[in-house]
């Protein structure tokens, strides 16, 4: 049996969680029709039961009550641990999101078993071998998970969320487990409102215009900001740019910044180091603007313009305005 910790957002089950269900279905089929059980926490948007059934989930445990009002990795893991025991699940998985990794790490520590972060596929069932991303996705690691339960998280965008051919029953259980006081020693005391421009906006943007060292300095971003505005998109920058203090960190795309997956990403003056590629490789289409035709970002892109961003970007802005008749 496979037990999944799933996250929700305003729209329903989070995308990374649905991707995790897709991997779990593949694993369940390979194992000869293993049941998939999901654990959800706290307040839920409407329609999640139907969504989970459509994605092939057999049973759902909805955890609420004292100790589950605000997120706590330890409390969440304590509930997962109890449900794991009760259901005899041999695999526990979650999306490779900050919370998915955090909760599974708590569970791994509590059970004293290994945990594989950011798994992209499983290479075999006996022994159970998973392949996971390391070095920001620039390399892969094959890792054996011999102990049970086997714990892992699923790397974002490594699977595609899609409805199951045979829907599940999504049989619903309400749960209100007790939480030990020690598991609430570290706790959230307040949650502030999101500001208008935050990483969430960058992660959700359909178009992201990127800028790197080629911007030349803190005053070199007017063109890319204007282009992003004209396309209704967001600005994303490389780590060099935030390290030099040219732009704020929340605009950073990369291994230690936001991971984006827009319809179109336009990196300007970004060479495409591993650190940056880790954050933008899931973009549907990449149009690189760079003076160096050999830069990794150019060779990995779908389209490229070879030239200085300070000449190319204003010309694109002008062409956009001309065609809009402005």
């Amino acid at each position: 049996m496979i037990l999944l910790y799933l996250e929700t957002d305003e729209a329903g089950i989070a995308e990374t969680s649905l991707e995790t269900v897709a991997l779990a279905r593949s694993l369940a089929e390979a194992g000869g029709g293993i049941a998939i059980r999901a654990v959800l926490f706290g307040g839920l948007p409407e329609g999640v039961a139907g969504q989970l059934a459509a994605h092939g989930v057999d049973e759902v445990f909805h955890v609420t009550g004292a100790g589950f009002e605000a997120f706590s990795g330890a409390a969440w893991a304590s509930a997962l641990q109890a449900l794991r025991e009760r259901t005899g699940s041999v695999v526990v998985a979650a999306g490779g999101s900050p919370r998915g990794n955090e909760v599974l790490a708590h569970l791994a520590a509590r059970l004293d078993v290994p945990m594989a972060a950011n798994v992209v596929s499983f290479a075999g069932l006996a022994p159970f071998v998973v392949t996971r991303q390391v070095v920001g996705g620039a390399a892969l690691e094959e890792m054996r998970l011999d102990q049970r339960p086997a714990l892992f998280t699923v790397a974002g965008h490594s699977w595609t969320a899609r409805a199951a051919v045979t829907p599940g029953k999504a049989e619903w259980h309400e749960e209100a487990p007790e939480v030990a006081p020690g598991d609430l020693a570290a706790r959230i005391v307040s949650v502030g409102q999101r500001e208008a421009v935050r990483p969430g906006a960058l992660k959700r943007a359909r178009v992201v215009v990127g800028a790197g060292r080629g911007a030349g300095g803190p005053d070199g971003f007017d063109g890319v900001v204007e282009l992003a505005e004209l396309l209704g998109g967001a600005l994303g920058v490389s780590r060099v740019v935030t390290s030099l203090g040219w732009r704020p960190h929340h605009e950073q795309v990369g291994q230690t910044g936001s991971r984006i997956s827009p319809e179109l990403y336009i990196p300007c003056g970004i060479s495409g180091a591993i650190q940056h590629w880790a954050g933008c490789s899931s973009s549907k289409t990449i149009l690189a603007i760079n003076t160096d035709p050999e830069a990794p970002m150019v060779t990995k892109a779908d389209y490229a313009v070879i030239g200085d961003m300070h000449e190319v970007v204003p010309a694109i802005v002008e062409e956009l305005r001309r065609r809009s008749g402005a």
Partner: peptide, 10 residues
């Protein structure tokens, strides 16, 4: 990669 052109002319 499909190169769309060089400089502003692209």
């Amino acid at each position: 990669v499909q190169v769309l052109g060089k400089g502003a002319e692209a």
